[in-house]
């Protein structure tokens, strides 16, 4: 496979991701506009939605990687340990290969026996790559190099920024959904005790809030599907980029094979952090299945498809090899 095909793959992925984000923003705008249009509420809903979205984005951007790192129990590596020293060397190598400066800091999850890794941080000045202890034990130098290149690509491509913005917007929709249903319930409870005169106004407000809530539910659902789609595209892109950096697609492919054949889940990973990892840390069945629903709801592409792309084989053949 030539170098150029990696670049092509990457460009295609970037375009697709931009399109997805564009689509998401249109959806959000459309949501605010729909409410304002049908209920003649002026610009108020748009303003409130934007305010909620802004707060979400700020919280996402400001809370930073330390929260994620502490939630999985990660610690800085110790360069005196030969295995950790090797990891540090590999990161330096990938820094030279990618030209990325400054390099991310390296953490590991002690006692975590599954094979996995993730990157976090919106800017390379404040980025972290974290691996499990199991990864250090199970993977050889070339395989580790492939995984680190994959994680570095996420930072290089500013994937965390896209993902954080997307999940912030999604969070905003969920907040609106909850607020609307709570509001409807509140009006129903307090409004019931008042005089007959107000009851039609009350009913109107309840119907209005329920409609808003239902709309938000639909948009949260669509938004989640989009978020997953972006997440999957980003994984393919990081694989392609890792192959470009290392010029050794086999290293990452072989690491993915080892990951596919081990069963362990990452103990402290949650749904909130799952999309960060190189392969689904929860080992959810949906991520390895094919079909319409599996395609919509998985954070990661099926691992055999990723291996197939890296090795230039057909997915069916890789699946057969893995099942042996």
């Amino acid at each position: 496979m030539s170098v150029f095909s990696f670049w092509e793959e990457q460009r295609k992925n970037v375009t697709r991701s931009y399109l997805l984000i564009f689509f998401f923003v249109i959806l959000m705008g459309g949501f605010g506009f729909l409410i304002d249009y049908f209920f003649e509420t002026g610009p108020w809903f748009t303003v409130v939605f934007l305010g909620v979205a802004l707060i979400q984005v700020l919280v996402g951007v400001l809370s930073g990687p330390s929260l994620v790192l502490s939630s999985v129990g990660a610690r800085p590596i110790n360069p005196l340990d030969p295995e950790h020293k090797q990891l540090e060397n590999i990161i330096n190598e990938m820094g030279i290969a990618s030209g990325l400066k400054p390099l991310p800091k390296i953490y590991y999850i002690p006692g975590e026996k599954s094979i996995n890794a993730f990157a976090t941080g919106l800017k390379s000045e404040n980025a972290y790559i974290c691996v499990t202890e199991g990864l250090l034990e199970a993977l050889n130098r070339e395989e580790t190099q492939g995984v680190i290149a994959h994680e570095l690509s996420h930072i290089y491509n500013k994937d965390m920024l896209y993902m954080t913005l997307l999940s912030a917007i999604l969070g905003a929709v969920v907040i609106i959904q909850v607020m609307a249903f709570r509001g409807a319930w509140l009006v129903a409870r307090t409004g019931g005790g008042r005089s007959r005169r107000d009851s039609s106004g009350c009913a109107y407000a309840i119907v209005f809030l329920i409609v808003v809530g239902l709309l938000a539910t639909i948009f949260a659902f669509l938004g989640r599907i989009l978020l997953f789609a972006v997440s999957r595209q980003r994984e393919y892109l990081a694989d392609a980029k890792a192959a470009e950096f290392t010029r050794n697609p086999q290293g990452l492919a072989s690491a993915l094979r080892k990951i596919a054949l081990t069963a362990g889940k990452v103990q402290n990973a949650s749904i909130a952090t799952a999309h960060l990892f190189i392969s689904d840390p929860l080992k959810r069945k949906v991520n390895e299945k094919e079909g319409f629903f599996a395609n919509l709801f998985s954070t990661h592409p099926p691992i055999y498809k990723r291996i197939a792309r890296l090795e230039g084989k057909s997915p069916e053949q890789v699946l057969m090899e893995l099942e042996q």
Partner: peptide
């Protein structure tokens, strides 16, 4: 030997750094 394996890792690292620097 720990000394040798440390040096070997350093050498491997340097070899990789050279080839990646050349690639870049």
């Amino acid at each position: 030997s720990e000394e040798v394996s440390t040096l070997m890792e350093e050498l491997r690292n340097t070899e990789n750094l050279i080839s990646f620097a050349r690639q870049f």
